[in-house]
Design a protein around this nucleic acid. Structure first.
Lengths: 116, 116
DNA sequence: AAATATGTGTACTATATACTACACATGACA
DNA sequence: TGTCATGTGTAGTATATAGTACACATATTT
């Protein structure tokens, strides 16, 4: 499923219950032209900027990191974290490339709980 | 220290011992015009593409992830790893934002050794 | 039936990215 | 001293990114 398809699907679902989720009205709320959002949803143009994707995520109640990923992007705040300690993070992330989900989850939990 | 300054410094250092490290010759080996490399080193233009930065890292014996970071970029292979599991990695990386170096290092080591 | 809202086609535009090509003054060296 | 290499100034190019503006046919609402 492409970025555009995903957006369209979820926007239309919300529209069932609330007609404020038309292309035009969502476009207005996230600050783009309706024709542009329409083209994005149909894959006629590339996904929009990170800022617009974030606004869209907020509007549709979706996870911004997931939407950014579908758009082929990585959140700029994550990039900044990595850029500040490139060797440490590059090494760790490559190690985790083939780790199972539960292992990554557990590490995140351990770090959060301060078990280190 | 900027990307350009760093490159110039390290290239000049190598040039002391080996005159094959002139702007012209390095430029030729990494596949750019000498004038362009000159401008990069003086910060006259933005850092080059990821591919050229990698070639430069190879040529100067530097860590590509570090050079990419100085250029304000994050390696595309890391971005791809994150994009495949955005929630897991986004969460983990944000957790590790303020973790001390030794903690991140230890996690990477633990993962490598399979202690999980 | 009239007014209004909706989705989309077409045609642009502005800025950034990632360079090349050529010329030229200066310095090294044979 | 002539040749060759060196670093750099100027000008230009191709492609990507991130959109806008307007018009128009088709619903939907009043």
């Amino acid at each position: 499923m492409t970025f555009g398809e995903y957006i369209r699907e979820h926007r239309e679902a919300l529209k069932e219950q609330d007609r404020r989720f038309s292309v035009r009205q969502v476009a207005q709320r996230i600050g783009v032209e309706p024709a542009y959002l329409s083209k994005i949803e149909r894959g006629d143009v590339a996904p929009p900027s990170e800022a617009k994707i974030r606004a869209l995520a907020e509007e549709l109640g979706e996870d911004p990191d997931v939407l950014l990923a579908m758009a082929g992007k990585v959140s700029s705040d994550l990039q900044e974290i990595i850029r500040k300690r490139p060797q440490l993070f590059a090494d760790l992330i490559r190690q985790l490339k083939s780790a199972p989900d539960h292992a990554i989850l557990r590490i995140a939990r351990d770090v959060r709980d301060g078990d280190w």
